[in-house]
Design a protein around this nucleic acid. Sequence first.
DNA 1: TTTGTTGTTGATTTTAATTTTCGATAACTT
DNA 2: AAGTTATCGAAAATTAAAATCAACAACAAA
Lengths: 141, 141
Amino acid sequence: MSSENQELRAVGLKVTLPRVKILQILENSDTKHLSAEDVYKALIEAEEDVGLATVYRVLTQFESAGLVSRHHFEGGHSVFELMSDDHHDHIVCDSCGKVEEFFDHTIEQQQERIAQKFGYKITDHSMYLYGICAACQAETK
Amino acid sequence: MSSENQELRAVGLKVTLPRVKILQILENSDTKHLSAEDVYKALIEAEEDVGLATVYRVLTQFESAGLVSRHHFEGGHSVFELMSDDHHDHIVCDSCGKVEEFFDHTIEQQQERIAQKFGYKITDHSMYLYGICAACQAETK
DNA sequence: TTTGTTGTTGATTTTAATTTTCGATAACTT
DNA sequence: AAGTTATCGAAAATTAAAATCAACAACAAA
């Protein structure tokens, strides 16, 4: 039995072809952040006959199940990323759209302190740095 | 001449009734973050006959002009906030939706360091902490 | 202050992302 | 294998936001 099957069962989702395929796409993609459209295109390419509505449905189910997390980058629409236990933040290139990830202990600690100061019990946080990456800086020279 | 008029001229926007009214609404609102719909509702209440399309247009113009900044809180759609020269980040209550602001020097510094490490030239950043505020924590007890 | 030019407006249409609906179908149970 | 129930795909519906366009208002010049 494939590992995808187990993962789906583990979170209480029935094992269906669309769900398995979408999970595989997320796992095998080299870009970590995929929009619903991206996933749909990947399905088309793989000659899998899965409707766009199903993609949206399944991604939302995956989110509720804690398999993926949904991000709203600047500009609005959702991108999805496989959940992993290693938390990280994002740095995005305004020019080419590249997204890199980082983890910074100092920042994490500081966030905790701030939350305490305000009396909040933190459930989540997001941090995005926007800028021009080295490659794009070189280009415009 | 009203201060709104001056502000508009200062950023090179022609002084018109919709723009003045919308600016006033942003300035006088007790919630700092307003969606286009929020602004529109406020206009209706003030019996100002301004179309929704104009609200979107004006808010976008205000953004380009640097009068307001646009945020994409979790859940998608845009909210606008009057620009002020004091930069700050946000802490949002998942339960009641309250938004508070903070500025933390350590975090700002650290972001700069991270950007350097990745070779990015930072243009902007956003940071959101999500959690349950003190009041809401008390309620569920 | 009238007039002319140009930018702005409101109503409506359009777009794009996402969600819902619903009959057909596939997954798990017995 | 058969029944129950969730899931699916296609298409329609919804939503936020942007674009269109003729009527109109702001500012400048006469």
